[in-house]
Design a binder for these strands. Structure first.
Length: 586
DNA sequence: GCCGTTTTCGGCCCGACTGTTTTCAGTCG
């Protein structure tokens, strides 16, 4: 049973206990733990296998820890089954409809004998729901709306689609509104979540009407959902909602902090503040005894007031970062400027758009000391994969480009297909001529778990394979990715010294943050690669650095943070000893 | 049910929003 499934059980327990009239704080405890588990960057099943104490997670004590163990090992929980049997079957699903909480669900059941989503829809259509006290036509309509939205539900947008849309809006506002001073993205986008719900913007301006009017009139705004003197929500043609808030300059920091979230982070922050006799809200920090409000123009000052180091948005998930900030033990995590090279880049020799010269020059422009050109192997016919003969002629071309451009080490590489049986698309004698070999899965994605796991492990055992590319092979919003025993793969990667790639291609973002965190724990060497097929895509790195940060990744976990000489030393070491080589450098 | 620089008992984050009310209940984040 995975974390979201466990979280759903606890959410259900909370709802049913509330219907039963259980003590509020018991209910809150279950709700809290459901949210925590849903956001947990490591699988509970894994923690249990490792013998870790779940009680170390905030919000989990003796009772819930025991319930989790039972759920994860047995796949069900007696306590929940018992509780559930006291209620009609459909009531849990009914409570998942936005606008229907435990109180409403209970009233529907008691007063209308409505106990399923289908009956709920019926009760709205025949008017019986609206006739209940404290219910009405509008309430009925909004629930009906939620039911329709539920059916048409599209998932949140991958960050790579939301970010450019947000940036276009930010850029247009900056250009067209001279009255804007500060303007920032907040919300899940600023925290670099993989997928985004709404785009939240915060700004300061001496001309509110101009800002709000400009936003409403942007060419890709299809309609204004909501607007008042200091805020507006608009729908973009991309299907995204933008929420803009204008605040006083003195409160910009407080507002940005509040609107960045996450909700869980803000909750923990507030608890921390309360312990100091203070209270945080979107306007600033108040001292409840005197009622005075202190405003903050910067987030840094706000955190400092609470005795905390500045916490980067990517870390604000409400899981240990506030304790770490209090004791100055936040990770010194990897930054974009730490990256010294890119180890997965395509040219027009295979399916890239741009020439070798352009790609190498582009890498140099970005300040890199080395770049691996990793065109596809012959088996990727669709990607114009290189036969061993073409690969050989590319080698000499590559040396010429390296000499002509100068100041950057160009590694001769390949993205070689891992075939269905785990063998590679080039024979060993060809692989041996290469500096950097990224082995990737592009076909046979539906293989059963065990076959897939063995296939990848076999590839990692090849001494010429330096790295595994986009391991899960997922495509955000399109394709789920392979089924495999990632734990076993990480263990083998650590043993064999095979680097695992954090693929920054916005469609992939692969590995995901929780997998990165686990791989690091097991001592796997990681690389952050752009997988660029055009010069502009060399800038992909921003997403992955940010998401690696969400996994508390530090520079010494990432091989392409090594300066050129150290990186070449790393490569010269026998594969199984490379992990030590990286650690020795740190 | 969780948790502890004062606590093994007695506290526990809170404001916004919506629709319903005539002072507030329920839901959400």
């Amino acid at each position: 049973m995975n974390n979201p499934q466990v979280a759903e059980v606890f959410q259900g327990i909370a709802g049913l206990l509330e219907i039963k009239g259980e003590q509020r704080f018991t209910v809150v405890a279950y709700q809290r733990v459901a949210r925590t588990i849903d956001k947990l960057p490591i699988e509970l099943a894994q923690m249990l296998r490792d013998g870790q104490d779940l009680k170390a997670i905030p919000g989990i004590g003796k009772a819930i820890s025991r319930k989790i163990s039972e759920l994860v090992s047995a796949g069900k929980l007696d306590f929940f089954e018992q509780l559930r049997s006291e209620f009609p079957d459909g009531i849990l699903e009914m409570m998942r409809v936005p606008g229907i909480g435990p109180k409403t669900a209970k009233r529907l059941w008691d007063e209308l004998e409505v106990t399923s989503v289908a009956q709920l829809e019926g009760a709205i259509l025949n008017g019986s729901l609206a006739s209940l006290p404290r219910m009405g036509a509008k309430k009925a309509e909004s629930i009906l709306h939620a039911l329709a939205a539920r059916e048409a539900r599209t998932d949140r947008l991958p960050i790579a689609r939301a970010m450019p849309a947000a940036e276009r809006v930010v850029e247009a506002l900056r250009e067209q509104c001279p009255g804007i001073d500060k303007l920032a993205v907040a919300g899940s986008l600023r925290r670099y979540e993989e997928t985004i719900g709404d785009i939240n913007l915060v700004c300061t301006s001496n001309n509110h009407a101009d800002v709000l009017g400009t936003l409403a009139a942007l060419p890709n705004v299809t309609r204004v959902l909501d607007s008042d003197d200091t805020s507006a929500s608009v729908m973009l043609s991309e299907g995204l909602v933008v929420k803009l808030r204008i605040v006083e300059d003195a409160r910009f920091g407080s507002a940005l902090q509040h609107l960045t979230g996450s909700h869980r982070h803000n909750g923990v922050l507030q608890e921390h503040a309360v312990r100091m006799g203070l209270s945080v809200n979107e306007h600033g920090i108040t001292e409840p005894s005197s009622g005075t409000l202190e405003e903050y123009a910067s987030e840094k000052a706000l955190y400092a007031k609470l005795g905390l180091e500045y916490i980067a948005p990517e870390l604000r998930i409400g899981l240990g970062e506030i304790d770490a900030a209090e004791t100055s033990s936040l990770p010194r995590f990897v930054e974009l400027k730490d990256l010294r090279g890119d180890l997965h880049v395509h040219s027009d020799w295979s399916d890239g758009r741009d020439s070798l010269e352009l790609m190498v020059a582009g890498a140099k422009e970005r300040g890199y000391g080395y770049v691996a050109i990793t065109d596809h192997s012959a088996g990727r016919a669709i990607a114009n994969g290189l036969t061993p003969e073409r690969l050989e002629s590319r080698q000499s071309k590559l040396r010429r480009v390296e000499a002509a451009i100068g100041g950057i080490k160009v590694l001769s590489g390949s993205e070689v297909d891992i075939r269905a049986d785990g063998s590679l698309d080039y024979p060993d004698d060809v692989l041996a001529t290469l500096d950097w070999v990224v082995a990737s899965i592009h076909s046979g994605l539906g293989q059963p778990r065990d076959t897939m796991t063995e296939r990848i492990i076999r590839a990692m055992q090849n001494p010429h394979v330096t790295a595994i590319g986009h391991l899960s092979a997922r495509m955000l919003g399109e394709r789920k990715g392979i089924d495999a025993d990632f734990e076993a793969i990480f263990v083998t990667a650590a043993e064999t010294g095979t680097v695992l790639e954090i693929n920054a291609s916005p469609e992939r973002l692969d590995l995901r943050d929780s997998h990165i965190r686990r791989a690091i724990d097991l001592g796997v060497v990681m690389a952050i690669d752009s997988d660029a097929h055009t010069v502009e895509r060399l800038d992909n790195q921003r997403y992955r650095v940010a998401i690696a940060r969400r996994a508390w990744c530090e520079a010494h976990h990432i091989v392409n943070t090594l300066p050129t000489d150290a990186f070449m030393d790393f490569l010269s070491v026998e594969k199984s000893r490379r992990r030590e080589a990286l650690q020795a450098y740190a």
